[in-house]
Design a protein around this nucleic acid. Structure first.
Lengths: 212, 212, 212, 212
DNA sequence: GATGAATGAGTGTTCATTCAT
DNA sequence: AATGAATGAACACTCATTCAT
């Protein structure tokens, strides 16, 4: 039994495939409403394989979260070399939106499942991600303040508005699409994303330059 | 089978009691993880009564949503008579936060259960609520613009940030409390709420007065 | 859910029927090798009923044991009025054999399942049964000693030989029958029982009158 | 497939190791409650090896029984040269108790698993063991009768009481220990064994010298 | 000769729902 | 109008075994 993966996180091809499908189904129907049989069927594997590879459905979720959460971490590398505080902020937002769009299912799982249930194991991972990102955002804010471009604003609240806006935008995609439908565009998906990024940049800038 | 209630929404005492308990449990553990037996036990009724009164567990959820969603509608009455656009905006935000705090379980249910599953029946109700609230917010924005106090900003995106901020704030209460813990306060709950309201007012104002 | 039975042991007809069948199957194939589906099929009931009535397979076993173990208790009433110590002893042995033959499956279950697994719940009941019976046997022995008929012998060891002999006799029924087969008899079952009772009486008497 | 071992019983080191561990686990938890994975884990081998070496779990049990049962055979060599019938009997009992204590797990397995399931293959071996031992005991009894020391008593019933007493003594070790606990002793295990041997000798002698 | 990967069949249990009364 | 009894379907999970290498 390949139990080692829990320690080393060396996931093989089959495991990654299962994770990808589980991610999609968990996001689509929720963790509880997705049976291991659903996953097995979609992955064209035997039901027993999920327990064989992940020991339990619960642990599949945990593995899936731990494996994917890294990609959500904000990173200074994206604006490195950039001197202008506004551009730094913009680049960070772009990076943020990109990372979420790159793995959209996971974020839905996180936000849906985290609330109600006390999935202790990954609640901690989630908390640490948040702390990490607050710190990274704080650095960008501090830099802007230091450059005289921004007024200081609590990065924790800033991040809350950024993430909250992003999530609600995605959650209400149907209605937002309807409102945006009077615009002639090539791809709704791309347009939504552009519009969302623009909006996020706007509110961040607005908050950080607001004069009481 | 007393099917009439779906049409007329004349819920009797027993039904309201069941709804109250179901709301709490659905919010706490999620819809799927809450069994009708859990509800029946907490409500001191027979399991069969839930199907008797609501036809199905699914329909209990739908009824519960439809019955509660009214309270979430934004309303002009709260700022009536008020001339100052900023005050109008503030009052609307206060009303919004109050309404959510008055029935916090329902909102958690809505946001958790909505996007995952195709709960067609109440997805529509949810959509209409959103449309209604966008319209009400639009009126406040338009009034501010007309008074020369605001620059116009898309109310749909504005509401998205407002709701998103609110939800993420609530979702991350543990971590936010941790960050706020260096402040000496009487009640965390009250403090959080005050801080959240202040933040919401701030970002709304910042967006609506931002000069490019 | 009729959970009350655990406290009050008021078993209804269906429950008693399930217990009877479970007893037979557990004795025949062992607890682990008997599936709830096997029981349900033999009892012409739905699988779910076993959990409905007994909460779990494990608890079915426990209930079954607790309900049946009473019948195995040795009892002074069987020799009451009798003055002769030897007759008292004989009557007690007859009663003992009769009670085991009346519910032979249960004793097989007890001895088979008790050994290996630490079924804590009924291990205690079993221990108390033994203590009770040792005490009752002690009374008979003491009476015989007092009457000058017996030499004292440890009742605990006496009971061990009595029970052990009984069990091994039953366990090796096939081979014992083979050895007894040269006798012309009406019913093997009855003959075995008579022979066993005779043997038990003999060894008890032999031990209690042995002169060093 | 190395099937030869079933015929020749030439068990290699790995097989003997597996048998030793299986014996312990089967005795401890029962055959059904012991998974081949449990055995493999304890033996630090691959799960597949058990089927590779023994074809099936069932056959592992059978092999294990056949291989170990030899040690339980009563043997005249232990009292050879001895003239006194009583001493012969005592020596045989000592040998009997020693052999069981030397491989206690196997006997527990035999008695637990035998009567419940129709383990045909080793039920036969068990039967033959019993016949062999009855014969050996008969020789000792006959010798004593011939010497005028014993009255004849059916050796089959005699063995039944001997084995039964032994098994029940072991099965009820906890309660017996409790009863013996008022004696100050170095080792319970040793004391129990001494006491058991003494008791066995006593009852055998008592039966064989009883005067009606 | 030996084993990691994989699987079909089966496990006990829980579920929302139905039905007779 | 209301409910205790009952159930079929589904659940996550474990099992001994097989098979390709």
């Amino acid at each position: 039994m390949p139990n080692y993966f829990i320690e080393h996180m060396e996931l093989n091809g089959k495991q990654l495939e299962i994770i990808a499908i589980a991610k999609e189904l968990f996001a689509q129907h929720g963790f509880d409403a997705t049976s291991v049989r659903d996953i097995a069927q979609r992955a064209n594997i035997n039901v027993a394989m999920i327990n064989y590879y992940f020991n339990s459905k619960e642990n599949l979720l945990e593995t899936l979260v731990k494996q994917g959460i890294e990609g959500y971490k904000l990173d200074a590398s994206y604006y490195e070399g950039e001197q202008d505080p506004f551009t730094r902020l913009d680049k960070m937002i772009e990076h943020y939106v990109d990372s979420k769009f790159a793995d959209p299912h996971l974020y839905q799982i996180l936000t849906n499942e985290l609330n109600a249930k006390k999935r202790g194991a990954y609640a901690l991972a989630f908390k640490e991600l948040r702390k990490h990102n607050i710190q990274k955002l704080r650095e960008v804010v501090d830099y802007g303040v230091q450059q005289g471009a921004f007024r200081f604003y609590d990065p924790m609240l800033l991040l809350t508005s950024m993430i909250g806006t992003f999530l609600d935008f995605k959650r209400n995609k149907p209605i937002i699409d309807e409102f945006l439908s009077n615009v002639v565009i090539a791809s709704y998906e791309d347009y939504s994303r552009t519009e969302l990024t623009k909006h996020l940049k706007f509110i961040m800038k607005a908050i950080l330059t607001y004069e009481n």
